[in-house]
Amino acid sequence: MELFAAGQPGLFRFEYFFALAIGALGIYLLLPSPRGKASVAGSIATLGSLGWLCFLGLAPGGFTIETGLFHLFAALALVGAVFLVTQTNPARAALSFVMVVICVGGLMLLLAAPFLMAANMIVYAGAIVVTFLFVLMLAQQDGPSDADNRSREPGLACFTGLALSASLLLLLQRDQDNADRGLGQMKALNAPVAELRLKQEQTLRREANGRPTAPADNTTFLGQTLYTTLLLPVELAGALLLVATAGAILIAQRRPGTEVTP
């Protein structure tokens, strides 16, 4: 069952919009500001919005283990993201990003992509965030700076976020409507996909009760795909990494005359 499938076609689901609006308000309240942030009200609003969204997500199907895990990971990822956005201390923000990455990894596992889960965590949590923390420590040796206590136009940013997320949900809903009515791209997308999905399911290993196991062969298949159909992009990505390495070294070089001592 898809998220919007139960609704009446053509009508916008205002409950989603209200949930989003409350979330946006909460984030606005949580964002750092010179007047201090309303932490309690903001937290309540944001958590309320998240809870509502989870409720809406659970509503169509009823509870299973999978839905429970999905909602757990999704909610934790979003909470981490909210932390990342609103934390005054950059180091804490970086750590909350690690949380996001881990939760997204869990979602990827639910989506039968164990290799990506691992790669995502290793690359982000293991490499990128650590590098960020290094730079952070290099730059902000004397604690949080003034800039971390200010936001650039928080109201405008939250409004933009609300508008963008509302329009994205609207688009998804419309797409679902069209699919329900036998129109639009979803149907066209689904038609050839049905066969493929059947084929894939037949190749999946199954447990005794007929439920497919998490595809442990994922790494093998992914490797095959990467080195057959996606060979050229892989080589290009390698070249890109090389160029980026060289560029980073070149940019970060110390040049005389560019530095200002405070």
Binding site: L78, V85, F132, D148, A157
Partner: peptide
């Protein structure tokens, strides 16, 4: 959320 953070936060990192 990433977008909102990108727009609102001022620390480059």
């Amino acid at each position: 959320l990433g977008l909102v953070g990108f727009l609102a936060r001022r620390n480059m990192i």
